[in-house]
Design a protein around this nucleic acid. Sequence first.
DNA 1: GTAACTACTAACCTTTTGTATAGTGGTTAC
DNA 2: GTAACCACTATACAAAAGGTTAGTAGTTAC
Lengths: 130, 130
Amino acid sequence: MAVPESMRAIHTPEQCKAHLMFIGDALYAIGGKWKLRIIVALLSGNKRFNELQRLIGGISAKVLSAELKELEGNGFIRRQVFTGTPVTVDYELTEYAGTLTEVLESLGRWGEMHRQNVKQSMKEQKGVAV
Amino acid sequence: MAVPESMRAIHTPEQCKAHLMFIGDALYAIGGKWKLRIIVALLSGNKRFNELQRLIGGISAKVLSAELKELEGNGFIRRQVFTGTPVTVDYELTEYAGTLTEVLESLGRWGEMHRQNVKQSMKEQKGVAV
DNA sequence: GTAACTACTAACCTTTTGTATAGTGGTTAC
DNA sequence: GTAACCACTATACAAAAGGTTAGTAGTTAC
């Protein structure tokens, strides 16, 4: 048995189908390369367009613009325009984005652990002959 | 303040960059449309290729095959061949896949809540004139 | 004898995603 | 006076992801 019993026990065939459906729903809303990163970037405070682009890194203006519109449409972020010279726009998380706290934390923790693991196995590959 | 303080408080600029990196690492390993679904499908027990394809739904043989190879290469699943007529192959989760329990549970819970929310707002749209 | 099952793979095509470059129109810094 | 910043948008193109169809080689069920 490769997987802990606690993990397997919750999965009758019906629960499995339900779980698959829910995971599918979640991925539909927040899947893709950028949506979660944008939300994480906004956790440390509201940001302007160019600030976001610099902080996230590797995202083009076109894609960032499209993702922000989608996130706004789905109620995860709010767009605020400040009239002035120059006009500035900032993006802030909504309360609904707050429901993602648990997901972001568990995914972040897992990513951290995974990074350690990858680093470790790279060390071992160097030390031991293949 | 749109987001709960508890969520925001952990994010100094450095923590934000680290969190972004970890989320990036996680998405690199288990991002995409299918990887998490395949893992969820295997939680209820080992499955053969065609069983997986039917259970997950909407995935082509080509893509399933490619994803299974990647998941095997990254240590999330194990491929077992049973010689016989016909030869059957089954896939099982490894212990490493077990480290995703928390992620899968929080994502599943969020997806369930999100589905309720979407259903609710669709009801409201029907009831109230636009 | 033909249809369905086993686990895929090859070839080709479409869709999605992303990049690069240039441009808007005005303001500020050197 | 020219370069940089603001927040994008348009256009054109490239790359990645995913879908469709057909086929392998053998076995079982009707």
